[in-house]
Each structure stands twice: as C-alpha cells, then as structure tokens.
Amino acid sequence: MKILVIIPAYNEQDNILNTIDDINRHCPEMDYVVVNDCSRDDTERILRENRKNYLSLPCNLGIGGGVQTGYRYAAEKGYDIAIQFDGDGQHEARFLRDLVAPIEAGEADIAIGSRFIRREGFQSTGLRRAGIGFLSGLIKLLCGIRILDVTSGMRAVNRRFIEQYAVSYAQDYPEPEAIIAAAVRRARIVEVPVEMRERQGGKSSINPVRSVYYMIKVSLALILARFSA
C-alpha cells in the first residue's frame, strides 16, 4: 500500500526537520509531504535547502486549506492511505504503524490517534479537555458515534476519504467537522491509542480569546454539517 504522511506546517523552522527525521526513522516505507502554509519564518528555505518533499502555498490558508492541499496531492499521486501529522513536534511517528493498521486491514475508513484511550502522554489542559468533551458529546448526539479525541490532528484515511477530503474539507478548526463530514457518509471511524507530546516550539494557533469563538463556531459547523448532507 502506498502511504503518504501529510505534514501541515506554519512557522515551524525549529521542528520541521525533526518531524521529517522522526517519520523516516520509524516508518521508512511511508512517503511524506510537508505543506508549508506560507510561513513567515525560514520554514520554506530549510525545506528547499535540505531538498525535502514539500508543497508551498503562496497565501496562508489556515490548517484546513493546508491539509486539503495535502489530500489533493495524495489523490493526484494515487496514494491508498493518507495520514495527517502535525509539523510542530506534538505527534510521534512511532505510533504511525498502529494508526494505519485498521485501515490496511480494511476494518476502518478513518483512524484517529487518540490521547484519551490509554490516558498516557501529554493530556492537554483541564479547560481544553472540557471543551473536547463537550464537542465529543455533541458529535455523539448528532451522529451516534463516540469519539473521545475529536480535535486530534493525527489521523489516517483510506482512498475513499482521500478523494472526499480533496474535494471538500472544512477551513478553520477543521478536525471535529471532518469527523462529522465523514460520519454522514457512513465512514467506519476508529480511535487508536497514541501518546502526544507538549508542543516543542512555535506557537499554538488557539489562544484564550479565540477559544470562545472556536467553541461557538465549531458547534454551529457540526450541527450544520449534520443536516446539510
């Protein structure tokens, strides 16, 4: 099976090479592509000079538009499985094989790397966990499926959903919305236990002021996504 790891990166000059090394060391059989979302730091120069495989967006699209570019690339290049894997050092490549296993076995369409199954590794802050719990409950209410780590950016999808996401993918804060969009298309979604690290450097895209906007926007988007399909 041809597997592509999509690495969205925005201002990740300090982490991006480590992330690529991590993947090459643990999963040399997988290809990767970095999607540089118009970083203002040296991310692009580092990628170019080290001859890494990357796409570079001429305007900043945000995480959703960046990841979707990766899915379009995967669709174009005929990959069977695509994995999203953050470029900021939070995700660990040693869990990638576990993540794709249910998809390779044909048991699932989408596999989500979840922090909350074994409750090991960095568990996020209390307030953020409460928000994740709320969104998880909302998704259960809307679609009847229980996903614990709905905001996890580490996920693998099969060919069917590579093609689906290449055509349509939520733009800002897309993770929970992508679950609903797949669930209404009757995707078989599983969670795979993984550990995550606290971010190594760079800056998180979510601050306290944005988190209220985040909760309202995502909740509305979830309800809308449920009833527009």
Binding site: T69, R72, Y73
Partner: peptide
C-alpha cells in the same frame, strides 16, 4: 475560488 487557486498553484509550483 481563491482557496482552490492557491492550492492549485502550490501543486503546480512543486
């Protein structure tokens, strides 16, 4: 439309 153009440009640039 802009989003699609940006993505298409990035794929072409590569």
């Amino acid at each position: 439309a802009i989003k699609q153009l940006v993505q298409y440009t990035a794929l072409l640039e590569k």
